[in-house]
Design a binder for these strands. Structure first.
Ligand SMILES: [Mn+2]
Ligand SMILES: [Mn+2]
Ligand SMILES: [Zn+2]
Ligand SMILES: [Zn+2]
Lengths: 137, 137
DNA sequence: CATCAACATGCAACAGGGTTGCAAAATATT
DNA sequence: AATATTTTGCAACCCTGTTGCATGTTGATG
């Protein structure tokens, strides 16, 4: 509980119950969450818009990062110490076609790619879809 | 013109002007297009819903494939001969942060990744963002 | 601990993307 | 030319995400 306050303070954010709840949800669930997921879990306590703004703030401050998959947009905790200035993410995301969960695979980096002449890459985003260990029968 | 009819016929699709126009737009533009893009270009001739359904049909028949980027969903022609049964795409997509265009890089394949135990990969989707050759000053 | 400026929230309202049902129109087949 | 089948347009709808503004909270300060 106190840990959450510290995390928020560390990013120059005021402590509010919505921010604490959203943050602790990300910490307890390990998988990526959409706005809709959070609304489902916290929507009785907070307005939709407040949850959106919380996500937006967390994104700007480097607390969470975007995770893209074929269904849309989700968010997951930044494991490295990201900040307002620098979001660094070159890890892989895995989406399970069975349970629908999307997870960061933190310890696995995206392999280098040799692009044709003239392309200047800045960001890499690799999504792998398949069956996750939990759903492998 | 006649070529379009052949392509549609080859996928067991009736020839309609909307399908011809959408298909020829994909052929002439080289980059990935969103529904909104197509609506902007053809929206005066066809209803929004018709364009949606055309995209959905093309998707199912293996004429186009989905392209994901941080702004949402786009579509691009399948270069290989995809069909209703088999969509095969392991190429890279590049989105330019300057002009906003997203393109298939057909001749470059996604490098192999060694996932942790238990993961069974089925699909790979690599999006690289940066500056494209056209926008490189 | 009371005051206050800065910030966060709820509410209402809106724009956009995407979907469905159904009647009318167009297509391919005979 | 007649017909069965598919496609279209329209209206209506849901979901996601955004904005403006008045009200409520937070944390810093004296
Ligand atoms: Mn991640
Ligand atoms: Mn492609
Ligand atoms: Zn799973
Ligand atoms: Zn460009």
């Amino acid at each position: 509980m106190e840990q959450l306050r510290e995390m928020l303070k560390g990013h120059q954010l005021r402590t509010t119950t919505c921010r604490e709840d959203v943050l602790s949800t990300f910490i307890s669930k390990k998988n990526a969450l959409s706005h809709g997921d959070l609304e489902g879990m916290l929507g009785e306590n907070y307005d939709r818009v407040t949850i959106y703004r919380t996500l937006k703030t967390f994104l700007e401050k480097g607390i969470i990062h975007k995770v893209l998959d074929d269904e849309g947009l989700r968010y997951a905790l930044c494991s490295q110490n990201c900040s307002e200035e620098k979001h660094q993410h070159d890890h892989i995301h895995f989406k399970c076609n069975e349970c629908g969960e999307t997870n960061c695979i933190e310890n696995l980096h995206i392999p280098a790619v040799k692009l044709p002449e003239g392309y200047m890459p800045e960001n890499f985003n690799l999504l792998i879809q398949g069956i996750c260990p939990k759903c492998k029968s």
